[in-house]
Design a protein around this nucleic acid. Structure first.
Lengths: 344, 344
DNA sequence: ATGAAAGCGCTAACAG
DNA sequence: CTGTTAGCGCTTTCAT
């Protein structure tokens, strides 16, 4: 059916090996083939309409040149949280530069589903695990099959590679920023407990509050979540009571949560930042378009994606990375959703 | 290195063929293997930690079980246009149900880049082309290699499969809605000329205006684009002049463009919908969270993704679809960005 | 129901 | 520099 190297070689009057060396996309040592032969092979190939078959190559080399990307769930792109999308874009770009292809998988939380078992097969040279659920068994599977992997937004263990950002410091900075503005009654809208960043951000909040001498009894930790809706709910719950005892500032677990809170506050007729200040976390593109533009902790998503790809490709190509656990710094992006406490 | 079928067969004391028939994930005719043999093979496989190798299968069957998804550019997810993200999610879900895997590619506009040439190889059984640029040569490449493809948001030719939505009627409905509200000076913020939907939406606008008896000289066609920024610019340009001659309504080429326009209008102190009405196009999730919530034309993105997958898989599995060109209906989603013309 | 053997298209020794 | 050859791990006739 299809034209093969053999056909090309015959047509060009050369050996298959010469044709292989010439037509192999990863042409490294084509010093092997002489100019005349190469030329004959090249023109034979285009004459016959030869198409290289990477599957056959993979079978013999054991490498596919594709890496898998496992996302936590199929709707990771449509949950309105631009985090996954931004990360994906950065990963795709990095991968292309390194001439790797991307296979996309989505897991369901918890155990390895049928689809993710498929992911852990010889079709990929390695896997990028994005926000893997804390109780996932993908790691065990990868280890068993000795498939290299790097996890993004989650530490696995000492031996595994991971890329995180400094959630603790981020939580600390966000809270400290509010404290520096004179706020004392600062609420934290806490993220989902099954995501590893939640605890770190919460700890940062607690530490900043503690360091400011605010007693634990005055900490306001409101269970919330990483989506707009829980942010909205938490704000409604927190601010629909007595305004005297309500907090004057909120550190939301992420920007989407902050967006929900912003909407609730707007509906309650509470002005941001005049009456209540809000800080988010992530600094994804839409945060700047919120009303008011959101002060938030910037997570270096692009860099995280690029670094994860770097690490994984290095492992795949047998250049063991010197540092396994990476924690990228965050920073405060000042916009208009925070101001001095009305009480000061 | 790795455990192969041969190892399993030897361990189980059966033939390789029996092991193959038993362990093949797409186990169709395993009537071939008797119960005793199957059992021995199964336990041998798990004892040895056998992992199936789909690459080897692909080499002999010529099928990979993976389909490629070609997006117009790497930032398709982060351009704040949730369209690609929503479509991707729907495609991923449909594909998983059909037990196909997804390989993600991004093209650059115009010609087939190196990366997309790679896409058109034996690693995929077919390709989904999303919003392919009008001057792209991927189609020619696919045809040459006889790789099945389906294009989403763009017609190629009579013989190719495509999934579109009714942009013309959508444009007509959007404009008609504004006309029915009493508006006469209605602007259309026109999309990028290199995207195929642009012309159809524009034609719909023109037809509705024409049918309402509004002379062509009163049509207001403002060059814009499918992103927030061009929408903002177009609105600034359109509404910063004399309010007497400014339009009272805008039909924006998509929601993102409408969002930009909304922001510009807000900055200009022009109230929506009291002074100016706005209609968008797409009805992606964020449209409802805009201020004010956006009246828009709903595009059935989920259905489009599912249909595209259906078509492609049917072609791949030799069930030629009866209908090639699909055009899904759109509908008007009424929210709060439109109201009766201030002049009526 | 089962086994033997011939490849799928390519790479990687190994000889020349 | 060049050609020959032995597989990579699996499916698939074709015998049995």
């Amino acid at each position: 059916m299809a034209i093969t190297l053999k056909d090309v070689a015959k047509h060009a009057g050369t050996s298959i090996a010469a044709a292989s060396a010439t037509l192999n996309p990863g042409n490294k040592s084509n010093t092997r083939v002489g100019d005349i032969a190469r030329h004959r092979i090249l023109s034979a190939a285009s004459e016959l309409g030869y198409a290289y078959n990477p599957i056959a190559k993979s079978l013999v080399t054991g490498k596919t040149g594709v890496i898998g990307l496992m996302l936590p769930y199929a709707d990771a792109f449509v949950d309105q949280n631009p985090f996954c999308a931004t990360l994906l874009a950065s990963i795709v770009t990095s991968l292309m530069q390194k001439h790797y292809n991307l296979m996309l998988y989505t897991a369901t939380s918890g155990s390895v589903t049928e689809s993710s078992k498929v992911a852990i097969d010889s079709r990929v040279d390695g896997i990028l695990l994005v926000v893997p659920p804390v109780n996932s068994d993908v790691f065990a599977h990868c280890d068993k099959r000795s498939i290299p992997y790097v996890s993004v937004i989650r530490d696995i263990d000492e031996n595994a590679c991971s890329v995180n950002c400094d959630d603790y410091t981020g939580g600390y900075m966000a809270t400290k920023h509010l404290i520096d503005l004179g706020h004392r009654r600062i609420a934290h809208f806490v993220g989902n407990p099954d995501v590893s960043t939640t605890a770190a951000r919460l700890e940062g909040y607690r530490a900043a509050m503690h360091d400011a001498g605010i007693p634990e009894s005055d900490h306001i930790e409101v269970p919330s979540g990483f989506l707009r809706e829980p942010g909205y709910q938490s704000a409604m719950m927190t601010f629909s009571g007595n305004p005297q005892s309500a907090p004057t500032a909120v550190f939301a677990c992420n920007d989407l949560c902050a967006a929900g809170a912003l909407q609730a506050l707007s509906e309650l007729g509470i002005s941001v930042p005049d009456e209540v200040s809000i800080v988010g976390f992530d600094d994804t593109p839409f945060s700047a378009s919120l009303q008011p533009p959101l002060t938030t902790i910037r997570m270096p998503i692009q860099e995280m994606g690029a670094l994860a790809v770097d690490l994984l490709v290095n492992i795949i190509e047998d250049r063991k990375p010197t540092t396994r656990q990476h924690c990228l710094p965050v920073s405060l992006t000042l916009r208009s959703s925070t101001s001095t406490s009305p009480k000061t």
